[in-house]
Computed example of a mutant assay.
Amino acid sequence: MFFSLSESYQRKKDELFESAKNTPLTSQVTVSHSQQLDHFINHFQNKKDSEIYVIEMIDKQTLTLKLEGQLDLVTASQLDHFIQENKPHWLEVDKLYIDLLDLHFFDTSGIKSIVTFMEEMKKRSLSISLITTKRTFEILDIMGVTDIFNNYNDETFHTI
């Protein structure tokens, strides 16, 4: 799956311009959007196209989603699309594993997709586990992702 970098750039640029219409150019919001846009440009000028592969495995009432590749601003929308398309097939699932072992890169926009999905599945009372490396767990912990499990009194990170 490929997603156009130019489309992502355009979306970010549109957000900046929309913000600039309604707020002064020196406002904290506009400056923040401008910095995000600068970061985005710098990050992707030297980066190859991002790719994410989602492998879905269902065994009885257990769903495993294995993510491979990069999960970032570019590929997060692909993951969101995959989830929305396949969610109707997962109504009988009562356990969810999200396997991040082969995720080679992720950023906050990518992880937001996972967190949003986990929160939605928690509302359905699913048991959710993330399968990560110790290093990935530590990064997710710094990002605050582990808090979603603490909110539900769930100790379901499996680290390797």
Results as ranks from 00 to 15, higher is better:
L25N: 11
L67T: 02
L126G: 04
Q45I: 12
Q35T: 09
H43L: 09
D99L: 06
T136P: 04
L71N: 05
K60G: 12
K122H: 13
L140D: 05
I111W: 01
D38A: 08
D72S: 03
T75D: 01
H158C: 09
L100G: 07
I114Y: 02
D99T: 06
N86C: 02
Q45F: 09
K47L: 06
H33T: 04
H43Q: 12
I52S: 03
K87D: 13
I58A: 00
D80R: 11
Y152T: 07
I111D: 02
S109G: 05
L79D: 03
S50V: 03
T132S: 15
N153H: 14
Q78C: 11
I128T: 01
Q36C: 05
V115T: 12
T26D: 12
K122E: 07
K134V: 15
P24F: 13
D147I: 08
I160N: 09
E155M: 10
F137V: 04
L73R: 07
T26K: 08
S32G: 04
I98Y: 02
V31A: 11
E56Y: 01
Q84R: 14
L101C: 07
L79S: 02
T156N: 15
I128Y: 08
T156A: 13
F40P: 07
F149C: 03
K123D: 12
S127A: 08
K112L: 13
H81F: 11
V54Y: 05
L63A: 07
T75Q: 00
D102A: 05
E51H: 15
S125K: 14
L96T: 08
H33W: 14
I142D: 08
N150H: 14
T108E: 10
R124P: 05
D59E: 14
F137P: 07
Q36V: 07
V31G: 04
K21M: 10
K122L: 15
H104D: 14
V145Q: 05
Q70A: 09
K134W: 05
D102H: 15
H43S: 10
M143W: 08
I142M: 11
L130M: 12
L140G: 04
Q84C: 06
K95C: 09
I131W: 01
D80Y: 07
P88R: 00
E51G: 03
H33L: 13
K123C: 09
L126I: 10
D102L: 10
I111L: 13
L37P: 01
S27C: 06
D99W: 07
S27F: 08
F149D: 01
D38F: 06
N151D: 14
